[in-house]
Each structure stands twice: as structure tokens, then as C-alpha cells.
């Protein structure tokens, strides 16, 4: 009884908290100064068509570095909690249909993932999305093929290599005295081409590799391995 009253009070409190937000809400018409500055800077200074990418990689680059660290800590946490609890999870013999389909589809998913994170500065998408897509490709391989084995040392090598290279690019900006994680250490190129926008595609590809290997390792740990 008391618990029901408490829950009711909490829900009413939440509604009361959000009610002013709905009643006073007016749809915005124009960008504020900071956002307008980001849009203009991304187009004119960085040669990056996708403004969201330039905000993530350059203007809020330190945020992204911290976020990748949080992801790494979560991977370590899952690995420590489930250490030594290897169970054979969904590895059962798959039918002919699933095996054939997924052997074709895994290659397509991998190519799509690489496309997404190398074209992160031109089209929607980028390192995080591409990494997730690559992890899903490995997951499909794990689900459909009984005999595939994940090589942990390669996974760990890719993860640590991309992390070190990411920080290394940031430090290279410091050495050249243009600022931490500044993409200007590489030539900016022409607007809208694949090899343009300085170091942004390189940084986003490294983020993609790191996110992909970390999520794959979370999935392999939680799914269990033979």
C-alpha cells in the first residue's frame, strides 16, 4: 500500500516536472550562435559536408575520447564479471539455408560497415555506426557457423592499436602546435571528396575499429564460447 502510494507520488512528480516543458514549448526557428558557428566552420574551415561528424570528431573531440574510454571500461567490466563462465551459448548446428545465406551476407555486412566509417564525413554514419555494423557481422558469423573461432589476440591487438593511434593523432596536433585532436595535421583536400577534411576520416576509421572490436568482445563474452 505504502509502496503503491510512493510510486504514484513519484510518477506524479515526474509529470509535474515535465509539464512546464510541454506547455512552454515553442518550436525553434533559427540556429543559436554556437550552432551557426559550428555549421559555418565545418563547411569553410574543415571541408566536412557532414556537420555532425565535425562536431563529434573535432569540436567535441575530447568528449568522444572520453566516451570511447567509457566503452572500454564497460568491456572490461563485462569481461571481469563473466570471467571463467564460458558456456556454449547458441552454437547449435545450423541448417543449410542459414549457413549459405549468412556466408554471403557476412561479407556484405562487413563491406557496408567499412563504407559507413570511411565515408563518415560525407554521408550519414561514421565510426560508431560502422563499428556497430561490423560487430553485428561478427555476431551473425557466430550465430550461423558452428566452427568459427574468434581470435582474441587479434581482437585485442586491433583495439589497443586503434586506441593508441587515436591518441597519437591528437598528440601530433599538439606537437605541430595547432591543438589537441585538430584534423589540420593532414591536407584538407577538396570539398566533398573521399580523401579530404584532413584527419577526420582517419580518426573516424580508428574509432570504428575500436568500437567494433570492443562490441565484438562484449558479445563474445556474453554469448560464451566453446
Amino acid at each position: 500500500m505504502i509502496r503503491n502510494m510512493a510510486v504514484l507520488l513519484a510518477v506524479i512528480g515526474l509529470v509535474a516536472m515535465f509539464l512546464p516543458m510541454v506547455t512552454d514549448f515553442q518550436e525553434r526557428e533559427n540556429l543559436n550562435e554556437l550552432a551557426a558557428d559550428y555549421v559555418e566552420g565545418s563547411i569553410n574551415d574543415l571541408n566536412t559536408p557532414n556537420v555532425v561528424t565535425s562536431v563529434i570528431v573535432t569540436y567535441r573531440g575530447l568528449d568522444t575520447l572520453g566516451e570511447v574510454t567509457v566503452l572500454f571500461l564497460a568491456t572490461v567490466g563485462v569481461g571481469l564479471l563473466l570471467k571463467g563462465r564460458k558456456e556454449d551459448m547458441i552454437r547449435i548446428s545450423s541448417s543449410e539455408l542459414l549457413g549459405t545465406t549468412s556466408s554471403v551476407l557476412v561479407a556484405m555486412i562487413m563491406i557496408l560497415g567499412i563504407y559507413i566509417f570511411t565515408h563518415g564525413h560525407l554521408t550519414p554514419g561514421g565510426g560508431f555506426q560502422g563499428g556497430v555494423v561490423i560487430a553485428s557481422g561478427f555476431l551473425l558469423m557466430l550465430l550461423s557457423n558452428v566452427n568459427v573461432k574468434m581470435n582474441h589476440s587479434i581482437m585485442h591487438f586491433v583495439e589497443s592499436f586503434s586506441g593508441v593511434a587515436y591518441v597519437g593523432i591528437g598528440v601530433a596536433g599538439l606537437v605541430l602546435a595547432i591543438g589537441f585532436l585538430n584534423p589540420g595535421i593532414l591536407p584538407l583536400g577538396r570539398f566533398g571528396e573521399l580523401f579530404s577534411a584532413g584527419a577526420i576520416p582517419v580518426i573516424y576509421s580508428l574509432i570504428g575499429l575500436k568500437v567494433g572490436s570492443e562490441l565484438t568482445s562484449i558479445l563474445v563474452t556474453m554469448g560464451g564460447e566453446k
Binding site: 551476407l105 555486412i109 559507413i116 550465430l143
Partner: peptide, 22 residues
Amino acid sequence: IYLDIAIVYALMSFVGVVAIAR
């Protein structure tokens, strides 16, 4: 460019359905 999302959507939903089926 919004069509990219449709491609990702199609491929990823296949993985989810295969996982539930397994």
C-alpha cells in the same frame, strides 16, 4: 542520403531475427 538508413535497417533486422530464431 536518407536511403543509407534503409540499407542498415534491412541488414540489421535480419541479424536480430536470426538471433531470436536461434
